[in-house]
């Protein structure tokens, strides 16, 4: 009767195994440092343009939408606060993570998936390399370090975007905007804004690599793996975001 539950549970079990192995390998030798840096380049520097654009437009949209509401209360001078808080706490981490998930989880899944179906993974194992150590762990480390940095830059650009709207449409002075933007942030917000990307990055890397390594069924399998990786990493990002927000709000 519960047969339909078996495949998802099995999948989750496999995922836990793969993840724990990958996480454990972070501290085990050998360290493939050149692979780590290469991945950092691909994941971090490569995603910089789109995350900056996401930040920029999010900041502008937040300021625009809020300006109407604030004007009714005569509180336009607070637009800096609002843009700052929403970006640093929610929009920055979540949107950046979703975009990076789309870009990189799919990349990881398809790359590893193609390697799986052409037996390169087996070849690696036959030649004495732990595929998890060589393929998954560098991507994990790269994502976990790069995504918080990307988020910070996206937040910053977003606040600049908000300032752009504030000064052109609402006529705020730069000190009005920026002082309120800095002042409203608390350590709690910063912590949230950094822990979230860190957690999301781990999700992105593990889910992407998991579906990649598990690929079977030729090119179709690679396509499926890519889709699954993007969908599931995005969903888990949203879920974990809720949990982390809950923890921080009650902190």
């Amino acid at each position: 009767m519960l047969d339909f539950l078996k495949p998802p549970i099995q999948t989750f079990q496999d995922f836990v195994l793969v993840s724990s192995r990958a996480l454990g390998n972070v501290f085990r030798r050998p360290h493939y440092n050149s692979d780590i840096f290469q991945q950092m380049d691909i994941i971090g520097v490569g995603s910089l343009p789109i995350t900056s654009m996401v930040g920029w437009f999010s900041g502008i949209v937040m300021a625009l939408q809020m300006s109407r509401a604030l004007t009714t209360y005569g509180a336009e001078s607070r637009v800096g606060e609002i843009v700052s808080i929403t970006l640093v706490r929610e929009l920055g981490p979540v949107l950046t993570a979703l975009l990076v998930a789309g870009r990189n989880a799919s990349g990881m899944a398809s790359e590893l998936g193609s390697m799986k179906v052409t037996e390169q993974i087996d070849a690696m194992r036959a030649l004495g390399t732990d595929p998890s150590q060589k393929l998954v762990t560098p991507r994990l480390i790269a994502s976990a370090t790069m995504l918080p940095l990307l988020t910070i830059i996206a937040d910053c650009i977003g606040m600049i975007g908000g300032y752009f709207v504030a000064s052109t449409q609402l006529g705020l002075t730069s000190s009005e905007y920026w002082t309120s933007a800095w002042q409203v942030l608390e350590y709690n917000d910063l912590a949230q804004g950094l822990i979230k990307p860190f957690a999301f990055a781990i999700i992105i890397a593990l889910v992407g690599c998991f579906y990649g390594i598990r690929t079977s069924g030729g090119t179709q399998g690679v396509g499926r793996a890519t889709t699954n990786a993007v969908v599931w990493s995005s969903l888990w990002i949203i879920v974990i975001n809720t949990l982390i927000t809950q923890v921080f709000v009650n902190f």
Partner: peptide, 30 residues
């Protein structure tokens, strides 16, 4: 496995590495 040499179907070369790196791979690994 270091004492075994395997040729997979289709070769299973690492397509992100050059030929030289591919062939050197087992040696680097050792």
């Amino acid at each position: 496995r270091a004492r075994v040499g395997i040729l997979f179907q289709e070769g299973a070369l690492f397509d992100s590495l050059t030929i030289a790196d591919n062939v050197a791979y087992p040696l680097e690994n050792q």
